[in-house]
Amino acid sequence: MKLQILGAGCAKCALLEQHAREAVTELGIDATIEKITDFGIIAQMGVIATPALAIDGVVKSTGRVLTADQIKVFISGGRFIPKHS
């Protein structure tokens, strides 16, 4: 599995990457995490709001710092449904 973090130079992108790492570690799965900072590639993926997350080439979320728990749901193939708090 390949997780891609799209976005460059902002604190939010770094935070999303950190959460993605946590999610991967907590699930104990074999996944690579790739940072995409090239605006040409980001544009080509159709993303206009960063930070964004793509899993295996599919953009799952844009303009949002997902939590590790939210990323875990995406990794397990589901759509993120928030817990009622």
Binding site: G7, G9, C10, C13, F39, I48, A49, T50
Partner: peptide
């Protein structure tokens, strides 16, 4: 539109494209 200045480049490219 929710928008953070760090997102201005992809937004700019997206709008232009």
């Amino acid at each position: 539109t929710p928008f953070c200045s760090c997102s201005s480049i992809p937004l700019f490219i997206g709008f232009t494209n």
